[in-house]
Nucleic acid binder design. Structure first.
Lengths: 113, 113
DNA sequence: GCATTTTCTCTATTATGTAGAACCTGGACC
DNA sequence: GGTCCAGGTTCTACATAATAGAGAAAATGC
């Protein structure tokens, strides 16, 4: 398989968080969104490393905004989904869906006929 | 990460394939099941490496069956899901589901209110 | 100035994903 | 009974993804 053909587990999560946040997606909010929705602890380094990878693959892009007039208002690096990212996350979903199909009736995890 | 706290992307797929195959889950059939359902090429080494890891984590177990009297009838190593594996895959699903919630209306990937 | 806040960058390490060659074992064939 | 074939597994090596956390920037408040 070619390298990076499929999104990793955390890459999927980060991409979805970014999508949810629409025009307010940057490192800190992405981290918060993931923690809020999944309850999973996320280190900030993990988020940025993943975002960088997604950007390198052409799934998202980012730009530095102007600093805002608040305490600690350092310039934020915003992210947005690119079309390739949209396809990638759809593909990931379809793959998992096809594997789950027909399982999980009443949480039973026994293949149903 | 706390080591191995979450299932990787391919780990999820392998686990689901194994579940689907019920009492006929061994290396070759698992590989086939994944290729059949997802269309994704899977090397046999990838499958076994992943199965070994899942076993080490206590998510599945395996045993060697007796060789069968067929051409190429080498003893097969069968796999089965353990309760911890069942929980793990459920958790993975819930995590992704919570991230997808409300998205993907008509494949649109724009957060819906 | 200097402390404090929010955010981003960088480094290091472990975990996961991946391919493929080598090897094992029985049947078929002659 | 040797050789090839088919279905299986093991092993090894390397590439990519996940993760934590310390440190550096940049802005405000006093």
């Amino acid at each position: 398989m070619a390298k990076g053909e499929y999104l990793g587990e955390f890459e999927q999560i980060v991409l979805l968080a970014l999508i949810r946040l629409a025009d307010n997606a940057y490192g800190m909010t992405i981290r918060q969104e993931i923690e809020k929705r999944t309850g999973r602890y996320v280190s900030i380094g993990a988020v940025y490393a993943t975002l960088d990878r997604l950007e390198k693959k052409g799934y998202v892009d980012s730009w530095l905004a102007d600093p805002t007039a608040e305490r600690g208002g350092r310039a934020k690096r915003y992210f947005e989904l690119l079309p390739a990212g949209s396809s990638a996350i759809q593909r990931s979903k379809e793959m998992l869906t096809s594997m789950w199909e027909g399982l999980d009736v009443d949480g039973d995890l026994t293949p149903q006929t």
